[in-house]
Amino acid sequence: MGLIWHGVDEVPDDFGPTAVTIGNFDGVHRGHQQVLARLKAAAAASGSRAVAVTFDPHPARVHRPDTAPHLIMGIEDRLAALAAYGLDAILVIHYTLEFAQQTPEEFVRGVFVDGLKASHVVVGHDVRFGRGNAGDLRTMQELGERFGFEVVVVEDFTEPAAPVERGHADDAEERRCSSTWVREALDAGDVRTAAEILGRPHAMHGEVVHGAARGRALGFPTANLDHDSAGHIPADGIYAGWLVDEKGTRWPAAISVGSNPTFAGVARQVEAHVIDRPDEAPEDFDLYGQRVVVEFVERLRGMVAYRGPEALIDQMKLDVEQAHEILSAAGRSV
């Protein structure tokens, strides 16, 4: 795993030269992955070290906290996803209103030139930086000429606008992969499209806490994620997916998102019922207190209010069977 710095002052003076890219990288989706691939190629070709620069908190949460988008992943998961691409280092800049007042030149000089000794800067056509997002691609190219670094421009990575239907629509309209598109898909419960854009299933990461134990009473015990869990919560409904425990074991699961309208006064929550849990040694299957990952594969249905527990139990049995079939068809042993 490469180095992680929290501030330019942590970068060693002799670390450069570097090939650098910059972005929020929320989701580290396939568009981001293309940028990271070009970054590594530029670093290898120039004998530089590959460095990604990102921000925490997300700039939108600083400039417009009341309307900022829900993040696809937390900062720890984002850094882990970036590190998985074999970067030499990641620079996390603490984003504040004061930092945002830097001009494009001040930002580039302080971070890329003086801090990272950049020989190459890898960006997309839509790059914006500096106070009021005044800097754009042309600004970056002009600053590159002045300070002696080469600007590498990465083309947009696109997907058919309806990835699930790709086999039936070869000429489907293309859309640029973006964090916004991922959020739109998750808000609609379309976790399959989100996975197409991300290049992997969408996931949440959090601690398993005690709930109302309604699932256990109905014969379907669940692992309830705490309300501070990281990751964008998909639309209410029932999903097929996976629960990954602290040992790294992947358990097939039927996942519920919502307030369970069959019962009054239930707060919105994310809970996963592990399919085929080891009944022979239940004492060894205690997930409480563990930090787990919940991955969403496919939405089975929306939330429905049933006439009573018996009708709900019958539906939950069908949900588990359907989730089992979907996960088996995905090529994993359940």
Rank of each mutant, 00 (worst) to 15 (best):
D156Y: 07
D171A: 13
S179R: 04
E155M: 07
L186H: 02
V182P: 00
P160Q: 09
D156G: 03
V182K: 04
T180G: 03
V153H: 08
V152Y: 06
E165G: 08
W181C: 00
W181A: 10
T158A: 09
R176Q: 09
R166H: 13
E184W: 01
P160F: 07
R166C: 08
E159C: 05
R175C: 04
T158V: 11
V152A: 10
P163F: 12
D156H: 10
V154Y: 09
E155R: 11
P160K: 06
S178C: 04
A162H: 14
R175A: 09
E174K: 14
V164I: 15
S178V: 04
R175G: 07
D171N: 11
P163T: 11
E155G: 10
A162Q: 12
A172M: 09
T158G: 02
E159S: 06
R183Q: 03
F157C: 06
A172H: 05
V154L: 11
S178M: 04
T180W: 03
R175M: 11
V152C: 14
V164E: 15
E165I: 08
T158W: 04
D187Y: 00
A169Y: 12
V164C: 13
R175I: 09
V152G: 07
E174H: 07
G167L: 15
L186I: 01
V154M: 09
E155Y: 05
D171S: 12
A161E: 10
E155F: 04
E155V: 05
A185F: 00
E155W: 04
P160N: 08
W181S: 02
H168N: 11
E174N: 06
D170H: 10
V153F: 06
S178D: 05
R175W: 02
F157M: 07
R166F: 07
R175Q: 13
V153E: 11
A172W: 08
W181T: 01
E184H: 02
T180V: 03
F157L: 06
G167W: 10
A172N: 05
D170S: 09
V164S: 15
D156I: 03
E174Q: 15
D171L: 12
R183A: 04
P160S: 08
E184Y: 00
C177S: 08
D171F: 10
E159H: 08
A161P: 01
H168R: 13
V182F: 03
V151L: 13
D156Q: 12
D171P: 02
V152I: 15
T158Y: 01
E155A: 15
A185H: 01
V164G: 11
S178E: 05
H168K: 13
L186V: 00
D187H: 02
A185G: 01
A162D: 14
V152E: 15
R175E: 09
E155S: 11
A185K: 02
A169P: 02
D171H: 12
C177M: 05
V151M: 12
L186C: 01
E174D: 09
R176P: 00
W181L: 05
R183W: 04
R166V: 14
T180K: 03
L186W: 02
D170A: 12
F157E: 09
E184T: 02
R176T: 13
S179Q: 04
E173A: 14
E184A: 01
A161G: 03
H168E: 13
R183S: 03
R176H: 05
A161W: 05
